[in-house]
Design a protein around this nucleic acid. Structure first.
Lengths: 162, 162
DNA sequence: TCGATCTTCATGCATTTGCATGATTCCAAG
DNA sequence: CTTGGAATCATGCAAATGCATGAAGATCGA
């Protein structure tokens, strides 16, 4: 059955991500930031002007909207990003990478990329690396296009309440 | 340069994981648990007797040891796992899946696997799925074998302090 | 134009997490 | 056997996170 190979593929992908990320965390690749904070700066650095709407940033992260809102507050307090109001939408907030934020991202990024290469090169040859990229991009594109399934409302059981 | 393809491969892997996990979270696949709590039950379900040392469990998760210790407390309070003392190590704690925990894991797992298959099958054919599994396992094995790099002590900057 | 609904973001509050540290137990060198 | 250090887990406490909700602007049909 094909559902088994699909589940196995996802499990391999997920576990591999966990294993690699454990190494990055253990080596403190993202210091002096948390990995999530770095991810915000990294995503901003890939945007046209180092800027993105809060909502678009949130769409690329595994973090809730309120958490991102407050994380941006902290990053802004540290001078790594700046908040601006979107000129085309009165509700919108644009997060911009400051010079200091861009610099810090580059510094961390250089160090981090070296660590990535050390681990990935040790396990995969160039063909495997290219294949991995191609397959992941294909999967991600397919999922991004597909509509989000909204589940029927279920109750979140509180573990402590039993 | 090879460091670029390695970084690209990791970035693809990571972003794909984020995208898929966002879907799973949005669909509330793990209800009534959090994804992290489900991951604990899932990992236990794959162990010989549904049991594992706290430290071994921690080695498979992206969570700190104190957090896992307290999460196990909550899961035990909910009757999904039980704590036992390791018979061969006075310090050790063995976490065992209870019948209720095993049942809940299976229920969530069935639902979750269907969702996985729906997304993965939509983007990848069988060959790609098999290749993805093979490459990820190869990478994970290589990283698992490699020794952990211990960094020089760095200071964690508090964002709020500036 | 008006009103209903959706979208976007912020805030109150409880829960969860991580860091630093402490208490035990295990282990290995002498 | 003893002792110093490593390994394993728990706990105090501050910080970060998520959920529920609110405020305010945008959008769209009547």
């Amino acid at each position: 059955m094909t559902t088994r190979t699909a589940a196995t593929a996802w499990e391999s992908l997920f576990r591999t991500q966990v294993t690699l990320m454990q190494r990055f965390e253990a080596a403190k690749d993202f210091e002096p930031l948390s990995s999530r904070e770095y991810d915000v700066l990294f995503n901003l650095s890939r945007m046209p002007d180092g800027a993105a709407r809060l909502r678009d940033l949130n769409a690329r992260l595994l973090i809730s909207q309120p958490s991102l809102s407050r994380m941006v507050d902290r990053l802004a307090g540290a001078g790594l990003v700046a908040r601006r109001e979107a000129d085309d939408d009165g509700r919108g907030v644009v997060v911009v990478l400051t010079d200091a934020g861009a610099l810090l991202q580059k510094q961390i990024g250089r160090r981090h990329v070296r660590h990535i290469a050390a681990l990935v090169d040790a396990g995969l040859d160039d063909d495997d690396q290219a294949a991995l990229t191609r397959i992941c991009e294909r999967l991600r594109a397919a999922v991004s296009d597909a509509p989000t399934t909204t589940p029927t409302t279920r109750t979140r059981t509180e573990l402590r309440s039993s």
